[in-house]
């Protein structure tokens, strides 16, 4: 890949992050709500503050956090902070910074997302390819149909239904939470197994919610490749069906799916956040939900920005990987 293209892609990445940061900076400042005032009013209700003290405290805080400076100056400081991934302090758990809170919750979300995305991508694409491949046996093609029917169902609703059937009726898997109540987290196999059991339903909800989409797009792609000359040629050369399927068919159809994966990242992450909240897992979704409920604004904005940046970077990375997978793009 040439240097100019890389530079172009990177500047686009910076623009996306800048746009997101700017929205997150200005929207709350346009709103009539004042996070500090609400926070102190809440504290005052629980006792211990005289109204005059609150005004002093707010003035003091505004000065400390630089909120009394002109808007443009605040904006510059803010952009500088974002470059350093510094999202400020949590209002609720004060000495903890937003970055601390995010990094505590991130592993839960990250592994759930990584596992479900890879698994549903592989299953969905394989099923899609098989169902579009004219020589695959009938019973194999039928497997894809139930997944396609589930395409429109949002993962959260899938989660509710799974909770009802598997968790509530059959009592096979736990109804939520990161691990069983009463177990102290430790480094043992039992604990790991317990955590795994609690991850099964959320993971299943996310996988079932996204496999159908991959099946559909892969099937559409596969149909267009069937008539291609190189596939006919490979057949006439006498290559085995398996070889054609793997090297000619799958290889060509998978490439656009990688782009599809990059475009689907946003939806996948937001689904994971909502599903986590449904199952009470201590990932970013629950942190976000708690922050929303307790008006912890720095945490809300921090998580939103962090995820946006992560997705933008991942999209760029996938785009840079693309030439490695596709020699036609590489040689251009």
């Amino acid at each position: 890949m040439n240097f100019k293209l890389i530079a172009k892609r990177l500047s686009f990445l910076v623009l996306v992050i800048w746009a997101a940061s700017t929205i997150v900076f200005f929207v709350p400042r346009l709103s009539p709500r004042n996070a500090l005032r609400e926070r102190f009013a809440e504290l005052a209700r629980s006792g211990g503050f005289a109204p005059g003290d609150i005004e002093k405290l707010i003035a003091n805080m505004n000065q400390q956090f630089g909120l009394d400076k002109p808007l443009l100056e605040q904006y510059w400081t803010y952009l500088g902070n974002i470059v350093r991934m510094d999202f400020g302090y949590s209002l609720n758990r004060y000495p903890a910074t937003v970055t601390d809170i995010i990094s505590q919750a991130l592993p839960w979300t990250f592994f759930l997302l990584l596992f479900t995305t890879i698994l549903s991508f592989i299953i969905g694409n394989l099923l899609g390819a098989i169902s579009a491949w004219p020589k695959s046996p009938r019973w194999l093609r039928g497997i894809a149909t139930p997944f396609v029917l589930l395409t429109g169902v949002p993962p959260v609703i899938m989660g509710v239904l799974l909770l009802f059937f598997i968790g509530f009726r059959l009592k096979l898997l736990p109804l939520g939470g990161p691990y069983s109540i009463g177990i102290v987290p430790n480094w043992s196999w039992e604990f790991a197994l317990d955590v795994l059991r609690h991850q099964m339903l959320p993971a299943l909800a996310l996988i079932l919610g996204s496999v159908g989409g991959w099946v559909l797009s892969m099937r559409g792609m596969g149909v267009t490749i069937q008539g291609e000359d190189y596939v006919n040629f490979a057949e006439h050369k006498g290559l085995t069906g398996g070889r054609i399927f793997r090297d000619y068919y799958l290889r060509n159809t998978l490439l656009p799916q990688v782009t599809g994966l990059a475009l689907a990242l946003g939806t996948l992450v937001t689904s994971a956040l909502v599903v986590e909240q449904l199952f009470g897992l201590p990932g970013l979704g629950q942190v976000l939900n708690n922050a929303i409920r307790s008006n912890d604004f720095p945490v809300i904005y921090g998580i939103v920005l962090f995820i946006t940046i992560a997705i933008a970077v991942l999209m760029a990375v996938l785009e840079f990987i693309y030439p490695l997978l596709d020699p036609r793009v590489r040689n251009q």
Partner: peptide, 21 residues
């Protein structure tokens, strides 16, 4: 359009909805 498309819409909506009274 191209710059705004990669930003997860739900998250921005969360910021806006959270900023409202």
């Amino acid at each position: 359009c191209q710059i705004l498309t990669p930003i997860p819409v739900l998250l921005i909506q969360v910021v806006v909805a959270g900023s409202l009274d």
